[in-house]
């Protein structure tokens, strides 16, 4: 990321917190019905208080950032990228796989969507294998053995010993699941 875009992101960040505070307040007003009870005892009072805390904190973060940027104008050393707390922004560590986190989120989301259909055993084995490969295992045998171990261990602990009704899937996958637990 170049310096300009990073600075833009850091300048926008304080506004995000204030914006979230406003959104929280709107959600509370829209999502909690008004009541005839005394103001402090209504179901809306406590969530409103929480949203107001968020809004006030958001405004404080924004004002701190504004004060920081004013200091930066008068002090060239302070003009280095900073986060909203006024501390120097942390440098990115040595990132080898730039978009791996997005891949991981996609894999887990696909797994959760497929879980009711494929059942726990099949879906988890596939996910564990793909995850291991995505995170960095480059040996097919290692990824396969690790996936089998994880599925076996969790099926025994949760499915058999703790009687958790793990999803069995639909259609032919029910038969596969029944074979294991």
């Amino acid at each position: 990321m170049n310096r300009t875009s990073r600075r833009q992101r850091l300048q926008l960040e304080p506004l995000v917190w204030t914006g979230l505070g406003v959104v929280a307040l709107i959600v509370v007003i829209a999502g909690v019905p008004a009541s005839t009870a005394t103001a402090l005892q209504t179901p809306r009072f406590w969530p409103t208080a929480a949203a107001v805390i968020m809004l006030v904190a958001g405004l404080l973060i924004a004002s701190n950032a504004l004060a920081g940027s004013r200091r930066a104008l008068s002090d060239p050393v302070a003009a280095q990228p900073q986060d909203s707390s006024g501390k120097p922004a942390a440098a990115d560590p040595e990132v080898l796989r730039r978009y791996n986190h997005l891949l991981l989120i996609g894999i887990i989301a696909a797994y959760v969507a497929a879980l009711p259909y494929l059942g726990y055993v099949v879906a988890t084995f596939v996910m564990a294998w793909v995850l291991a490969w995505t995170i960095g295992v480059r040996k097919i045998l290692s990824a396969t053995l690790a996936s089998i171990t994880y599925v076996a261990l969790t099926t025994v602990i949760f499915g058999i010993l703790m009687n958790v009704p793990l999803p069995r899937g639909r259609g032919p996958f029910v038969e596969i699941s029944t074979f294991f637990f």
Partner: peptide
Amino acid sequence: SKGVFGVGLGMLLASIGNDPMTATQRMTF
């Protein structure tokens, strides 16, 4: 300031669902 924001967010998230006193649905949409 961020910590206080976090506390507010946590309180708000915990209020989702049934109101403990009146059973009114809060932010369930």
